[in-house]
Amino acid sequence: MDNKKFKALEIKEVDNDYKRNIIEKEINELPEGDLLIRVKYSSLNYKDALSAIGNKGVTKEYPHTPGIDAAGEVVEDKSNNFQKGDKVIVTGYDLGMNTAGGFGEYIRIPSDWAVKLPENLTLKESMIYGTAGFTGALSVHKLLSAGIPGKNILVTGPSGGVGSFACSFLAREDYNVTAATGKTDAKEYFQNLGVKEVISRSEVNDDSGRMLLKEKWDGVIDTVGGNMLATAIKSTKYSGAITCCGNVASADLPINVYPFILRGVSLLGIDSVQVNRELREDIWHKLASDWKPDHLDEISTEITLDELSDYIDKMLAGDSKGRVVVNLN
């Protein structure tokens, strides 16, 4: 392909500070890879916001273009896995972390990172889901595959992207979802997700030091980690299961072995980055069919590349609501 110019958000380190600018780049500046994609939509995630302020745990070298999610059309594929014009989704792997990401109009990646857009899903809808929706779906899939003993499921961090989607998917599978949240006044929001009961997160944040707690939950989807996860594990019924995908509360887990050896409880780790292609495709087809919410557009805000920097600041300040979709058309 010709060395075409395109727009991208670039984060550049200047005197120990990190500046954001919309710049013009060239195709030959992109990293090596056999698949070139014209990005139509991306989405803003907290990991992108961290990359934008120089978090070296996310991005090691600058200048850099974040964007861990991207959806668009194939321009060129040297691997012959895709045809020119195919619509594809890219989430996970190294996209947007140390590989130029979806906040640019073009990306070049290994073809194994991409999956074809399923039927009944638009490129924009795939980015309303993004990594958050994919992780929520993966959590539900793994929890239900564990063969939990009943229908009562606890979701922690239910107002976040992963938790919100998990609540919705569980409700579509006819599970009784309890949302543990600090936003107990947002009952209508949770009811619209299909949540049966909303409780204060203080109710699942036990500090008694007891080794085991009263059995309440057949399964748990935890997105926060720390003591809330420990409390959930201690409160899960015999042969129940808990998924773990976040650490916003803490990366430490203050727990003993008794829930595992006396109740047979399973703790299931969720990683959405290195998921194999077969499972990745299965999850995306589920998101395009059985688990697709009726009003997916209503939980997102669409912005342009020029508006992105302001929304990064909003996310870092905790003022961002719902999913933020970046239109690069």
Rank of each mutant, 00 (worst) to 15 (best):
S250V: 05
Q274H: 12
P31M: 06
Y129E: 02
K237C: 09
D2G: 10
N205R: 08
E125M: 07
N28W: 02
N176I: 01
G246C: 06
F165Y: 15
A180K: 06
L213S: 05
G219Q: 06
L144C: 11
A249V: 10
T223H: 08
D69R: 05
P66K: 07
V198G: 02
E32Y: 00
L143M: 12
D218G: 08
N16C: 01
T184Y: 09
I22M: 00
S200L: 10
A114T: 10
H141S: 09
L212P: 01
S139V: 11
K292Q: 12
N21W: 01
V39W: 07
V195N: 08
T223N: 14
T301S: 14
H295R: 14
D34W: 00
N120W: 05
E10V: 15
G161K: 04
R263M: 08
I53F: 00
I27K: 08
F103G: 02
I299S: 03
V325W: 04
G264R: 09
G130M: 05
M1R: 14
V248P: 01
T301A: 05
S164K: 03
R108S: 04
L143D: 07
T91K: 03
V155S: 05
T156Q: 12
Y106P: 02
D313E: 14
F103A: 04
I283C: 03
K142P: 05
A317Y: 01
N45W: 02
N45S: 03
K116W: 03
N329A: 08
G147D: 09
L9D: 01
K56S: 06
G130C: 09
V325C: 03
I89L: 01
E173D: 14
C167D: 13
D271R: 05
K286G: 07
V324P: 00
N98M: 00
V177G: 06
E32D: 13
I153W: 03
K237I: 06
S272A: 14
A114C: 11
N28E: 15
S51L: 09
I22W: 02
G160V: 12
L279Y: 11
S159T: 15
I22A: 00
I242V: 12
V162P: 04
Y62V: 12
S208P: 09
Q83N: 15
K19Y: 09
D207Q: 15
S250H: 03
V74R: 07
D86V: 14
S42L: 02
K151A: 04
V155H: 07
S159Q: 12
G147F: 09
L95H: 04
D294V: 03
M97N: 10
V324D: 00
V265P: 00
D282W: 01
A49T: 11
P149C: 08
I283M: 04
G182A: 15
H141M: 05
K7R: 15
G240F: 12
K187P: 06
P259R: 13
P118R: 12
T91S: 02
L95Y: 01
K187S: 13
E278S: 14
K214M: 10
C244W: 14
H141W: 12
T99V: 11
S309L: 01
L193Y: 10
G92E: 07
L35N: 13
A52W: 02
